[in-house]
Each structure stands twice: as C-alpha cells, then as structure tokens.
Design a protein around this nucleic acid. Structure first.
Lengths: 200, 200
DNA sequence: CGACTGAATGAACGCTTGTTTACCTGCGCG
DNA sequence: CGCGCAGGTAAACAAGCGTTCATTCAGTCG
C-alpha cells in the first residue's frame, strides 16, 4: 500500500517529525501539513497513522538487514565479517540518522503483532553477530573473555554482540556529519573498538 | 513540590507506565488510577504532567551523577576510576531499569529549558569519563588508538567515552535480573569490555 | 465525448486529553 | 471541641485527537 511519490513524501515528513517530537506526540495534521495537504489525505495512502509508523520502522529494519547480509557474505572470515557488520551499522545509523533513530525508539508503540515482527528482525540481526563472534572464538581469532574453560559460551557471545550493536545503534542519537568526524572516520574508529571488544 | 508518600507513589506508577507505553502515550487518568485515585488528585502533588515527568527524569540523572562522583573519588588512578564509573552505570541501569530507561528516552519531550538542564547533566557525566580516559592515556595506562603522534586527542577520548556510556546505558533496555546474568556478573563483563575499549 | 479513477478537500464525528473547579471529608492541634 | 486544611471527589471544560464521509476535481482511456 505504498510506493507512490506522495506516500513517500508523507513518510519522509513523518520521519522528520517523529524524530523531533516522538511518534505519539506528532499529529496527522502536522504530517500532512508538511506536505501541503489536509489531514484526510493521509488516508488515501495509509490505512492509519500506526500503519505509517509501521512502514517507516519496518523499511529501516529490512534495509539494515539486507545491507548486513550483503556485507557479511562478501567477507571471508569472522574478523572480516565483524568489521563488515560494524561498518554497515555505523554507516546506516549515521547516514540515515533520523529514520534509524525513529525505528529504534518508536517500534515499541506498535501493536503486539507488528512489534513482534520487528523484535524478530532485531533478534535475527543480533544472532547473526553472535554467530560471527562464536566462529571467531572457535578459530582463535577472537577471545571473548568468558570463563576460560568453557570454550564456546553462547551467552557471553550474545552479551558482547549486544554491547557492540548498542554502541553502533546509538550513533543515530548524536552523530552529525563532519562534527568533528566524517562517517568514514567514525566507521574506522568503531571498527577498532569492536575488534578490541571481541579480543581480536 | 514533592517528597510526600503520595507524590512518590504517583511518581512510581508513572515510571512504570512511561516505561511500558511511553510518556506521551500515558494519560493522567492511568497514572492516578494505578494509585486508586481520580485524575484531579494528581494536581495536589504536581503542577502538571510535564513536571511529573521532569522530576522523574531529573531525579534519575542527579542520582546517577551523585553515585558516579562518589565512586570515582574513591578510586586512586584512571584505571580504577574507569572501572568504578562503569560499575556504577551498569548497576544503576540494571537495578533501576525502568526509571533509567524513561529518563534516557523521554527527556527529549521536556520543554526547552528543562531539556537543556538535563542535557547539561548528561554532558557533565560524559566529560567526566572523557577526562578519566585522557588522564589514563597521559600516564600510559590507556591507549585510545587515536592518531599516534597526537598525544592527547580529546575528540578521540570523547568518542570512546560516548561508546562506553552508550553501551552501559542500553543495559536498561534489555536487562532482567538473573536472565541469564546477575547484576554483579554483568558489571564485571562490562568492565572488561570498557577496559579493552580504552586499550588498557 | 463520456465514463471511470485516484486523490484532495473541508466539515463533521465521537472520544480522549490535560486541567480546573466547586465541593466534601476526616484528622491533628490549639 | 471545633476549626483549618491537606487531600480527596465528581463533573465540567475547551482543545485536540484520529478517522470518516460526501463531494469535487483533474486526468486517462476506449
């Protein structure tokens, strides 16, 4: 129920307002007014305000997952995959700062079914990094610092994965291009931090 | 305008609801109903709903700052101070999960003046860790991994401080005592991660 | 040309919101 | 003992909310 230019413009205006005020604090009238329309017009393009929020949140999560898959599959070993995943996360959350922030903060306001779908994508993304960390630990490329004699501790790997992703995701809360870092510089610094966290 | 038991009870109910639904999505009637009161009663204890949110957010931030100061001043050197700060952050965000999450997410909804006050506390907290990292780099205890020949790069230290705090703050989004980690175990794991990030 | 369609409109809907008001009540204290 | 008052109530308030609706209008196509 999307894909027309008008729908895209409404979604873009919504992202901007959601980012600045929060989704619940943003009214349908504000969104449509930003596009030079009146309130009722929104319902020619979205069945409800919640569906509009849903498409924004879902598109961002699916886009992120797609980029992560692409980058990871091009990397040869766990170290390269960790680097690739961190680069994609930082890039997405820095370059699409507003939609990323909205997606990460406001998805909790979706109804149970839709929220479950988003939570599932987020779990898949985290599990993907967890597996990379475990693979690297198995080859000796990483040292996750769990209890020494417990070779492949998945809960330790999950914890490190969570910490790495939390750090990357939060970039969307404060980053501004070129103040004082470029996106590329930020990527390289965060790659270094992630490698250190993994004990590389 | 706070400090009576009734005001505290209202604040506690508000934290719980804000945590689950967001502050803007929570109504005055829901908050008072949770305390067995009617809507009007809230105004015997708070001048507005926004002031209630403000006291919740401010109390959490001031409490965190107080604990950080206390822990840091008891530590002898930069390494000990970094460990102390991370322990406090993890402890507070794990043990007071709901109020921490509300404070970190919903402070953006406050009016300009109050938001500026909160942003200031957050900046002070981050600057404190930045200084610890710089001190540790000066003594050779840390290696922050900035450009090698630029001995005391404050922007690099700020970036590492931001990454460490973001990781700790986000604990409030997912932690549940004993699943599978206790607060104490989580503290030690995050201390290890932070030390690695600082190049200790 | 004339029928059809997608999209915008403005008015209205019913409901909920935060807040105010006028009134009531029970407890502590001079 | 009776008075004051902190703290409760129900009811009302205007404003604002998301959403619906009948209608209009501009293109498109056979």
């Amino acid at each position: 129920m999307t894909e027309t230019p008008a729908a895209r413009q409404l979604a873009a205006a919504a992202v901007d307002l959601f980012y600045r005020q929060g989704a619940k604090a943003t009214t349908v009238r504000e969104i449509t007014q930003a596009c030079g329309l009146t309130a009722g017009s929104l319902y020619n393009h979205f069945v409800s305000k919640e569906e509009l929020l849903y498409t924004v949140v879902r598109d961002m999560h699916l886009g992120l997952e797609r980029e992560v898959e692409r980058a990871q599959s091009a990397a040869p070993d766990p170290t390269g995959q960790l680097i690739a995943i961190v680069r994609v996360y930082v890039d997405q959350h820095a370059r699409h700062r507003k939609s990323s922030r909205v997606a990460n903060v406001e998805y909790t306001l979706l109804n149970a079914e839709r929220r479950a779908e988003i939570v599932d994508i987020r779990r898949r993304l985290r599990d993907r990094l967890t597996s990379v960390l475990l693979a690297g630990q198995a080859t000796g490329a990483f040292d996750l610092g769990g209890d020494a004699f417990d070779g492949a501790d998945r809960s330790t790997a999950t914890l490190v994965a969570t910490a790495i992703l939390d750090m990357c995701v939060h970039v969307s809360a404060w980053f501004h291009e070129g103040r004082p870092l470029s996106t590329a510089e930020l990527q390289e610094r965060y790659v270094l931090l992630a490698l250190r966290m993994a004990g590389s």
